[in-house]
């Protein structure tokens, strides 16, 4: 689904001593099927922004279009339940929202709530279990007997079971170990491609944004600060530093190397192995040229 924000502002607790403007005149549009990373430091408005995407909050000003749905200030959105079925949100630490007696019931809870038949749910469960890499033998167990990483997979399976068209991921790998992080992100990327989803990833990790996203939006103090492809955005060292963000490590290294050696390397999506080969080559050529 195409998503667009037009001059969207959001103010928490307006007209109170705690009034806080979390979003300020945000404008952007995302084409259906894009994998977007929303990046910004803590408090930049990322979480507020994504709460709009399934209508948990409505803009204080401005307008949001998600497919055929419209969200506006002071105006109830028609078919909000439909919107919520199509926009699946994986919140931070989604395992904290598990509550059912069995894993099967927990995964089925979302779709059931949206009126999906028991039969249909039974068909979907094996698919989502496979997607999140959990064994069907676990279905009758309590979700609370699982490890943290497995609980997160169950919670994600519950969102996937609604078969959303848009997947919103708020720091989905927080607290997982590196192996768990990579497995979960690879899974989302695979789903994104296979099901032609529109995916919105909120992350602190420039590395993940670089690796997985087609498009990056950077927020700062509730405003859109930069947008573009990772290769466009992440090479702008000074601009990133101004909002306390780092470049991804590989780009950082490449720029420092170029500066120090006066040679050209350039980031072009190469692997670490590829980069090592290039450096080796460059330095050896240098030696030959000097000799």
């Amino acid at each position: 689904m195409d998503i667009s924000f037009k001059q969207v502002s959001y103010i928490y607790q307006p007209n109170s001593p705690f009034e806080h403007q979390a979003l300020k005149e945000i404008d952007f549009s995302i084409k259906s099927g894009t994998f977007v990373a929303i990046v910004g430091h803590t408090g930049s408005g990322k979480s507020t922004l994504i709460q709009h995407l399934n209508g948990l909050i409505r803009p204080t000003k401005g307008e949001i279009n998600i497919g055929d749905f419209t969200l506006k200030a002071n105006e109830k959105t028609a078919n909000i339940k439909d919107l919520r079925r199509q926009v699946g949100v994986v919140f931070q630490y989604p395992e904290h929202q598990l509550f059912e007696e069995t894993i099967e019931k927990d995964i089925g809870f979302g779709p059931k709530n949206f009126g999906v038949s028991d039969e249909e749910i039974k068909q979907r469960i094996p698919q989502v279990l496979e997607a999140v890499n959990l064994s069907p033998e676990l279905l009758s167990r309590s979700p609370f007997d699982l490890s943290g990483g497995q609980m997160r997979r169950v919670a994600i399976a519950g969102v996937l079971a609604m078969e959303p068209r848009v997947l919103v991921l708020d720091e989905p790998t927080a607290g997982l170990d590196p192996k768990g992080q990579q497995e979960i992100m690879d899974m989302f990327k695979e789903l994104h491609t296979r099901k032609q989803l529109t995916t919105i990833l909120v992350t602190h990790s420039m590395e993940d944004a670089l690796k997985y996203a087609d498009y990056v939006i950077i927020l700062d103090h509730g405003q859109k600060y930069m947008e573009g492809t990772p290769a466009e955005v992440f090479v702008q060292k000074e601009a990133l530093q101004r909002v306390q963000l780092d470049m991804p490590e590989i780009i950082q290294f490449i720029q420092s190397f170029e500066q120090r050696f006066g040679l050209t390397l350039r980031y072009k999506g190469q692997s670490i192995e590829g980069l090592a080969q290039e450096i080796n080559q460059l330095l050896k050529e240098e030696v030959r040229a000097d000799g």
């Binding site: 170990d177 590196p178 192996k179 768990g180 990579q182 590395e207 490590e249 590989i250 290294f253 670490i272 192995e273 980069l275 090592a276 450096i279 080796n280």
Partner: peptide, 15 residues
Amino acid sequence: IGLDIPFIAKLANEL
């Protein structure tokens, strides 16, 4: 054992 070394260390090992 499920851990990952920093980028610089990886690059050094590749070099």
